[in-house]
Amino acid sequence: MTATFALIVDTFREAMARKIFWGLFGLSLLMVLFFLFIMKIDVVEGATATITLFGQTAGGEHRDMAVDKLVKQVHSSISTFLYSFGMFLAVFASAGLIPSVLEPGRIEVMLSKPISRAHLLMGRFIGNVLVVSCNIVLLVGGVWLIFGWKTGVWSPGFLVAIPSTIFVFSVLLTVVVLAGVLWESTAVSTMIPVVMMILSPILAQEETARKLLSSEWSRQLWLFLYVALPKVYDVGKMTLDITLGQGAGSWWPIWSSGAFGILVYGAAQWIFEKRDF
């Protein structure tokens, strides 16, 4: 337990020293403060008269409904941001944290300690996930609290964005770990998951592709890639649907992405166990 905690704290320490943590934290905080101050509420005789968000006023006899809609729209915008720019930023910022620990002269000292390689890798992985999780919790939780407090609309569906974003980031991080133990390169460790993120919405158009592709093998290849690779787009869409109160639909993107993550992490650990340093 002491060693696991030390590995997690070390990841945080390195993330802070590399300004990764502070960069993500600053961005999340900026967004929270943005919503805190951008949303103006006018109170007349103890009742909410108007709510101004991004210059739009929700009011009149349908005020409650309009506010509810507006809040859900903001929540879905945040979810979309998390699954696009936010995820890219998280992968980009934290990809270096895995290869750095494998640097010659550093890894030997860690391996000389009475901890297994699996323990070392897992400690680093958890630390990395927690660095990003803190910022996701701050952003989603902060926005949810601000909107709930200012509008009285507490939409719990939005909070699903916390576990779902952390989950997708963890799956992409397994790719970072595998690339890290194979090539010890931050650039490669960043590129591969980013390519997967870019491919995800394209591969998700599987039905359209089936109609457009002429050969059977290309259709099968498309299907294989769609099934095998993490479904960032699909999980994002699922989160968005839950945020908008439309239900989760199929859980297939979750468990297939999870299986991908477990498989890739297992491969990374197997390679790490066999490597010479």
Binding site: A6, E14, S112
Partner: peptide, 27 residues
Amino acid sequence: YLPENHRFPTYFTGAGMLDFYAALSGV
């Protein structure tokens, strides 16, 4: 163990570094 070409992370303070490696050793 003290390796020949060690590269201790530069973000550590001296005490922080010892604390980290001691924790890995279960102290």
